[in-house]
């Protein structure tokens, strides 16, 4: 596929301490190569803004290869843009057309306060992990890795759940700003493995309670999260979390 250039109009959320309420600002994005990623397009726009003496647009990013979970914005009403199972850094400009207007907003949730422009503070997800998303290792002689048999099916399911990169798109896409897909994935990948079993009960209760305390909304099974998740995590992980919670809460 040959490379092309397209011209776009961006409407970007700008918010900083001089403009604490925030507003959408319009900027042109001209001569954008269709081979660029969405973040590279923002880099180009930022260089132009800097040259003009305008403060560049702040956005989060790190790996730019879809594995770290730092990037993310709502593009034309869709978390990480309209392509399935794609993070914003892996979204390419070839999926846009010349002349398009693109509205870019930060993740919006009470639990994710906007720090600046497109940067939202999603550290609430880390706090959910801190509440119980780990296994306690009592150090000793290292064990043979194959000493603990794990059913292949469970290993696969645990791996799939563990592909969650903690990007927060599920919260951003949820009509209720609930963090259940993330929490479900984190509870599931440990609950499916023998190493996670001893602490399963406390983990389920602690992580669900942390989710509530941090101000996330309540899941009403809208299933928007699984449709937007860049890693294709299924709401079956939420069902598994519910089972884990029921086991922990009533036994």
């Amino acid at each position: 596929m040959s490379s092309q250039t397209i011209n776009l109009t961006l409407k970007v959320w700008r918010q900083n301490k001089n403009n604490p309420r925030g507003a959408l600002e319009t900027y042109p994005a001209n001569n954008i190569s269709t081979d660029m990623s969405f973040l590279e397009m923002l880099d180009v726009v930022n260089e132009e803004l800097t040259a003009e003496g305008v403060e560049p647009i702040a956005f989060d990013h790190d790996c730019r290869e879809g594995i770290c979970g730092m990037c993310g914005a709502v593009v034309n009403g869709r978390a990480h843009g309209h392509m399935p199972e794609t993070t914003l850094c892996q979204l390419h400009m070839r999926h846009f057309n010349d002349g398009d207007t693109i509205v870019i907003e930060p993740w919006r949730a009470r639990a994710f306060p906007v720090v600046k422009d497109l940067v939202a503070d999603s550290s609430g997800l880390d706090k959910i992990i801190q509440a119980g998303g780990y296994i306690s290792i009592n150090a000793g002689g290292p064990q043979d890795g194959n000493a603990i048999p794990i059913a292949r099916d469970n290993a696969e399911k645990a791996f799939n759940a563990a592909t969650c990169i903690g990007c927060g798109a599920c919260v951003a896409a949820c009509p209720n700003a609930s963090a259940m897909l993330f929490t479900g994935a984190k509870i599931s990948h440990l609950a499916l493995l023998p190493q996670g079993k001893p602490e399963a009960k406390n983990r389920a209760l602690a992580m669900v309670r942390a989710m509530d305390e941090l101000g996330f909304g309540n899941c009403s099974n809208e299933a928007e999260c699984e449709a937007e998740c860049p890693k294709g995590i299924s709401i079956r992980e939420i069902a598994r979390m519910n089972r884990e919670f029921i086991k922990a809460a009533f036994s």
Binding site: K11, W13, G22, L24, V74, N76, G77, R78, A79, V103, E105, R108, A109, R110, A111, V114, A173, P175, N176, A177, S178, G215, F216, G217, N218, S220, N221, E222, A223, E224, C225, E226, A227, E228
Partner: peptide
């Protein structure tokens, strides 16, 4: 649930599109 979920997102999106998860039933519950 209705009031808490309303409060869970104070600023709403300027553009809000469904990714295909919601149904007429779930939207209007």
């Amino acid at each position: 649930l209705f009031t808490r979920n309303w409060q869970a997102r104070k600023t709403r999106y300027a553009v809000d599109k469904s990714a295909g998860g919601r149904t007429i039933g779930s939207r209007t519950m």
